[in-house]
Protein backbone atom coordinates (compact mmCIF):
# COMPACT_ATOMS: atom_id res chain seq x y z
CA UNK A 1 0.00 0.00 0.00
CA UNK A 2 2.78 2.40 1.00
CA UNK A 3 4.56 1.67 -2.29
CA UNK A 4 1.41 2.39 -4.30
CA UNK A 5 0.97 5.71 -2.45
CA UNK A 6 4.62 6.66 -3.12
CA UNK A 7 4.09 5.77 -6.79
CA UNK A 8 0.90 7.85 -7.12
CA UNK A 9 2.53 10.80 -5.33
CA UNK A 10 5.46 10.57 -7.76
CA UNK A 11 3.02 10.57 -10.70
CA UNK A 12 1.22 13.64 -9.38
CA UNK A 13 4.55 15.38 -8.84
CA UNK A 14 5.54 14.62 -12.44
CA UNK A 15 2.17 15.96 -13.64
CA UNK A 16 2.79 19.16 -11.70
CA UNK A 17 6.29 19.50 -13.18
CA UNK A 18 4.82 19.01 -16.65
CA UNK A 19 2.11 21.66 -16.03
CA UNK A 20 4.72 24.11 -14.70
CA UNK A 21 6.54 23.96 -18.04
CA UNK A 22 3.67 26.14 -19.31
CA UNK A 23 2.97 28.41 -16.34
CA UNK A 24 0.95 31.08 -18.18
CA UNK A 25 -1.28 28.49 -19.83
CA UNK A 26 -1.82 26.79 -16.45
CA UNK A 27 -2.81 30.04 -14.70
CA UNK A 28 -5.00 31.22 -17.58
CA UNK A 29 -6.96 27.95 -17.68
CA UNK A 30 -7.34 27.97 -13.91
CA UNK A 31 -8.63 31.56 -13.84
CA UNK A 32 -10.94 30.87 -16.82
CA UNK A 33 -12.58 27.94 -15.05
CA UNK A 34 -13.10 29.97 -11.85
CA UNK A 35 -14.77 32.72 -13.86
CA UNK A 36 -16.93 30.18 -15.70
CA UNK A 37 -18.20 28.72 -12.42
CA UNK A 38 -18.83 32.17 -10.93
CA UNK A 39 -20.91 33.22 -13.94
CA UNK A 40 -22.98 30.05 -13.63
CA UNK A 41 -23.63 30.76 -9.94
CA UNK A 42 -24.88 34.27 -10.75
CA UNK A 43 -28.02 32.58 -12.14
CA UNK A 44 -28.78 31.16 -8.69
CA UNK A 45 -28.12 34.53 -6.98
CA UNK A 46 -30.68 36.15 -9.29
CA UNK A 47 -33.10 33.26 -8.74
CA UNK A 48 -32.92 33.38 -4.92
CA UNK A 49 -33.22 37.18 -4.96
CA UNK A 50 -36.80 36.59 -6.18
CA UNK A 51 -37.64 33.29 -4.41
CA UNK A 52 -36.43 32.67 -0.90
CA UNK A 53 -36.18 28.93 -1.33
CA UNK A 54 -36.97 26.07 -3.72
CA UNK A 55 -38.35 22.89 -2.16
CA UNK A 56 -36.47 23.60 1.08
CA UNK A 57 -33.16 24.65 -0.53
CA UNK A 58 -31.87 28.22 -0.13
CA UNK A 59 -28.86 30.14 -1.45
CA UNK A 60 -26.62 28.88 1.37
CA UNK A 61 -27.50 25.29 0.45
CA UNK A 62 -26.53 26.10 -3.13
CA UNK A 63 -23.20 27.50 -1.90
CA UNK A 64 -22.56 24.22 -0.05
CA UNK A 65 -23.62 22.29 -3.15
CA UNK A 66 -21.29 24.24 -5.47
CA UNK A 67 -18.55 23.93 -2.84
CA UNK A 68 -18.71 20.12 -2.80
CA UNK A 69 -19.35 19.63 -6.53
CA UNK A 70 -16.69 22.07 -7.78
CA UNK A 71 -14.10 20.81 -5.29
CA UNK A 72 -14.98 17.18 -6.11
CA UNK A 73 -14.79 17.74 -9.86
CA UNK A 74 -11.65 19.84 -9.49
CA UNK A 75 -9.77 17.39 -7.28
CA UNK A 76 -11.02 14.39 -9.28
CA UNK A 77 -10.13 15.62 -12.73
CA UNK A 78 -6.89 17.24 -11.53
CA UNK A 79 -5.51 14.15 -9.80
CA UNK A 80 -7.05 11.65 -12.24
CA UNK A 81 -7.01 13.75 -15.41
CA UNK A 82 -7.17 10.78 -17.76
CA UNK A 83 -10.63 9.93 -16.38
CA UNK A 84 -12.05 12.11 -19.15
CA UNK A 85 -9.77 10.59 -21.84
CA UNK A 86 -9.94 6.91 -20.98
CA UNK A 87 -11.96 5.93 -24.06
CA UNK A 88 -9.39 7.64 -26.29
CA UNK A 89 -6.54 5.81 -24.54
CA UNK A 90 -8.32 2.48 -25.03
CA UNK A 91 -9.42 3.05 -28.63
CA UNK A 92 -6.04 4.37 -29.81
CA UNK A 93 -3.94 1.65 -28.17
CA UNK A 94 -2.36 3.96 -25.59
CA UNK A 95 -2.99 1.49 -22.76
CA UNK A 96 0.14 -0.36 -23.99
CA UNK A 97 2.31 1.98 -21.96
CA UNK A 98 0.51 1.27 -18.68
CA UNK A 99 0.34 -2.45 -19.38
CA UNK A 100 4.09 -2.69 -19.90
CA UNK A 101 4.92 -1.24 -16.46
CA UNK A 102 4.58 -3.03 -13.11
CA UNK A 103 1.70 -1.00 -11.66
CA UNK A 104 -2.11 -1.32 -11.48
CA UNK A 105 -3.20 -0.33 -14.98
CA UNK A 106 -6.32 1.65 -14.09
CA UNK A 107 -4.74 3.69 -11.30
CA UNK A 108 -1.64 4.35 -13.39
CA UNK A 109 -3.66 5.44 -16.44
CA UNK A 110 -6.03 7.70 -14.48
CA UNK A 111 -3.32 9.47 -12.46
CA UNK A 112 -0.98 10.05 -15.40
CA UNK A 113 -2.49 13.35 -16.40
CA UNK A 114 -3.66 16.56 -14.71
CA UNK A 115 -6.05 19.09 -16.18
CA UNK A 116 -4.94 22.64 -15.48
CA UNK A 117 -8.51 23.97 -15.60
CA UNK A 118 -9.46 21.55 -12.81
CA UNK A 119 -7.31 23.55 -10.40
CA UNK A 120 -9.72 26.45 -11.12
CA UNK A 121 -12.70 24.24 -10.24
CA UNK A 122 -11.00 23.23 -7.02
CA UNK A 123 -10.16 26.80 -6.01
CA UNK A 124 -13.71 27.91 -6.82
CA UNK A 125 -15.16 25.05 -4.77
CA UNK A 126 -13.11 26.01 -1.72
CA UNK A 127 -14.18 29.66 -2.08
CA UNK A 128 -17.83 28.58 -2.38
CA UNK A 129 -17.51 26.40 0.75
CA UNK A 130 -15.91 29.35 2.58
CA UNK A 131 -18.80 31.60 1.53
CA UNK A 132 -21.36 28.95 2.58
CA UNK A 133 -19.78 28.68 6.03
CA UNK A 134 -19.73 32.47 6.35
CA UNK A 135 -23.40 32.91 5.41
CA UNK A 136 -24.55 29.86 7.41
CA UNK A 137 -22.91 31.45 10.43
CA UNK A 138 -21.95 28.10 11.86
CA UNK A 139 -18.61 26.39 11.60
CA UNK A 140 -16.77 23.73 13.52
CA UNK A 141 -13.98 21.32 12.80
CA UNK A 142 -16.48 18.48 12.25
CA UNK A 143 -18.00 20.43 9.36
CA UNK A 144 -14.56 20.64 7.79
CA UNK A 145 -14.16 16.88 8.20
CA UNK A 146 -17.60 16.32 6.68
CA UNK A 147 -16.62 18.56 3.77
CA UNK A 148 -13.47 16.48 3.24
CA UNK A 149 -15.46 13.25 3.32
CA UNK A 150 -18.17 14.67 1.03
CA UNK A 151 -15.55 15.75 -1.54
CA UNK A 152 -13.85 12.35 -1.33
CA UNK A 153 -17.19 10.66 -2.06
CA UNK A 154 -17.83 13.04 -4.96
CA UNK A 155 -14.38 12.28 -6.43
CA UNK A 156 -14.86 8.51 -6.02
CA UNK A 157 -18.31 8.38 -7.61
CA UNK A 158 -17.43 10.81 -10.41
CA UNK A 159 -14.24 8.98 -11.43
CA UNK A 160 -15.93 5.58 -11.08
CA UNK A 161 -18.84 6.74 -13.26
CA UNK A 162 -16.48 8.05 -15.96
CA UNK A 163 -14.48 4.81 -15.88
CA UNK A 164 -17.65 2.73 -16.15
CA UNK A 165 -18.98 4.64 -19.16
CA UNK A 166 -15.64 4.63 -20.98
CA UNK A 167 -14.92 0.97 -20.25
CA UNK A 168 -17.69 0.28 -22.75
CA UNK A 169 -15.05 1.17 -25.36
CA UNK A 170 -13.64 -2.34 -24.90
CA UNK A 171 -16.92 -3.77 -26.22
CA UNK A 172 -18.45 -1.17 -28.53
CA UNK A 173 -15.44 0.77 -29.79
CA UNK A 174 -15.49 4.56 -29.90
CA UNK A 175 -17.50 6.06 -27.01
CA UNK A 176 -16.41 9.70 -27.35
CA UNK A 177 -19.94 11.04 -27.85
CA UNK A 178 -21.37 8.85 -25.08
CA UNK A 179 -18.61 9.99 -22.71
CA UNK A 180 -19.20 13.62 -23.55
CA UNK A 181 -22.98 13.28 -23.00
CA UNK A 182 -22.50 11.32 -19.76
CA UNK A 183 -20.05 13.95 -18.45
CA UNK A 184 -22.41 16.82 -19.29
CA UNK A 185 -25.35 14.97 -17.71
CA UNK A 186 -23.58 14.29 -14.44
CA UNK A 187 -22.27 17.88 -14.21
CA UNK A 188 -25.69 19.35 -14.94
CA UNK A 189 -27.74 17.14 -12.61
CA UNK A 190 -25.25 17.36 -9.74
CA UNK A 191 -25.72 21.15 -9.60
CA UNK A 192 -29.48 21.11 -8.89
CA UNK A 193 -31.25 20.67 -5.52
CA UNK A 194 -32.24 17.02 -5.19
CA UNK A 195 -35.66 18.07 -3.92
CA UNK A 196 -36.57 19.16 -7.47
CA UNK A 197 -36.69 15.49 -8.49
CA UNK A 198 -38.85 12.62 -7.33
CA UNK A 199 -39.90 9.13 -8.42
CA UNK A 200 -38.06 7.70 -11.42
CA UNK A 201 -35.99 10.84 -11.94
CA UNK A 202 -34.66 10.63 -8.38
CA UNK A 203 -33.95 6.91 -8.78
CA UNK A 204 -31.94 7.65 -11.95
CA UNK A 205 -29.85 10.20 -10.06
CA UNK A 206 -28.80 7.51 -7.60
CA UNK A 207 -28.15 4.81 -10.23
CA UNK A 208 -27.75 5.45 -13.97
CA UNK A 209 -26.46 9.02 -13.62
CA UNK A 210 -25.29 9.03 -9.98
CA UNK A 211 -25.28 12.82 -9.68
CA UNK A 212 -26.92 12.67 -6.24
CA UNK A 213 -23.77 11.05 -4.78
CA UNK A 214 -21.63 13.87 -6.21
CA UNK A 215 -23.79 16.85 -5.32
CA UNK A 216 -26.92 16.94 -3.19
CA UNK A 217 -26.25 14.05 -0.82
CA UNK A 218 -22.73 15.09 0.29
CA UNK A 219 -23.74 18.78 0.31
CA UNK A 220 -26.63 18.09 2.73
CA UNK A 221 -24.33 15.90 4.82
CA UNK A 222 -21.72 18.68 5.02
CA UNK A 223 -24.30 21.18 6.29
CA UNK A 224 -25.69 18.89 8.99
CA UNK A 225 -24.62 15.43 10.16
CA UNK A 226 -26.98 12.56 9.36
CA UNK A 227 -25.97 8.95 9.97
CA UNK A 228 -28.26 7.57 7.25
CA UNK A 229 -26.75 9.96 4.71
CA UNK A 230 -23.24 8.97 5.81
CA UNK A 231 -24.12 5.31 5.22
CA UNK A 232 -25.61 6.14 1.79
CA UNK A 233 -22.52 8.10 0.79
CA UNK A 234 -20.12 5.33 1.88
CA UNK A 235 -22.20 2.56 0.28
CA UNK A 236 -22.66 4.48 -2.99
CA UNK A 237 -18.94 5.24 -3.26
CA UNK A 238 -17.96 1.64 -2.52
CA UNK A 239 -20.47 0.18 -5.00
CA UNK A 240 -19.51 2.49 -7.87
CA UNK A 241 -15.79 2.01 -7.19
CA UNK A 242 -16.20 -1.77 -7.23
CA UNK A 243 -18.32 -1.73 -10.40
CA UNK A 244 -15.90 0.54 -12.25
CA UNK A 245 -12.86 -1.56 -11.33
CA UNK A 246 -14.63 -4.83 -12.16
CA UNK A 247 -15.96 -3.69 -15.54
CA UNK A 248 -12.66 -2.04 -16.54
CA UNK A 249 -10.57 -5.14 -15.82
CA UNK A 250 -13.10 -7.42 -17.55
CA UNK A 251 -12.89 -5.16 -20.57
CA UNK A 252 -9.10 -5.00 -20.45
CA UNK A 253 -8.99 -8.68 -21.44
CA UNK A 254 -10.52 -7.61 -24.76
CA UNK A 255 -7.98 -4.82 -25.30
CA UNK A 256 -6.52 -4.98 -28.79
CA UNK A 257 -3.74 -2.39 -28.66
CA UNK A 258 -2.97 -0.36 -31.80
CA UNK A 259 -0.17 0.91 -33.97
CA UNK A 260 -0.75 4.67 -33.90
CA UNK A 261 2.29 6.86 -33.30
CA UNK A 262 2.01 8.32 -29.80
CA UNK A 263 3.46 11.04 -27.62
CA UNK A 264 3.47 11.15 -23.79
CA UNK A 265 2.54 14.60 -22.53
Amino acid sequence: MGRQIAFVLALWKTNLLSAMEYRVSFLTQMAGMMLNNAIYFVFWIIFFARFEEVNGWDLVDMLFLFGVVATGFGVGTYLFGNAVRLSLLIASGQMDYYLSLPRPVLLHALASRSNASSAGDCAYGLLSFGAAVYFAGAFDILMLLRFGLGCLAAVTVLISFLVLVQSLTFWIGNTNLLTSNAFNAIVTFSLYPITLFDGTAKLLLFTLIPAAFIGALPAEFVRRFDLAQLAQICAGSAIFLFLATFVFYRGLRRYESGSAIQVRT
Partner: peptide, 14 residues
Protein backbone atom coordinates in the same frame (compact mmCIF):
# COMPACT_ATOMS: atom_id res chain seq x y z
CA UNK B 1 12.29 -3.81 -20.10
CA UNK B 2 10.56 -2.82 -23.30
CA UNK B 3 10.94 -0.07 -25.86
CA UNK B 4 8.46 0.50 -28.65
CA UNK B 5 9.81 2.81 -31.33
CA UNK B 6 6.39 4.28 -32.03
CA UNK B 7 5.32 4.56 -28.39
CA UNK B 8 7.61 6.78 -26.33
CA UNK B 9 7.67 6.36 -22.57
CA UNK B 10 9.51 9.60 -21.79
CA UNK B 11 7.31 12.55 -20.83
CA UNK B 12 7.38 14.85 -23.84
CA UNK B 13 7.46 18.23 -22.07
CA UNK B 14 9.88 17.24 -19.31
Amino acid sequence: GSVFGQRPQLWYHL
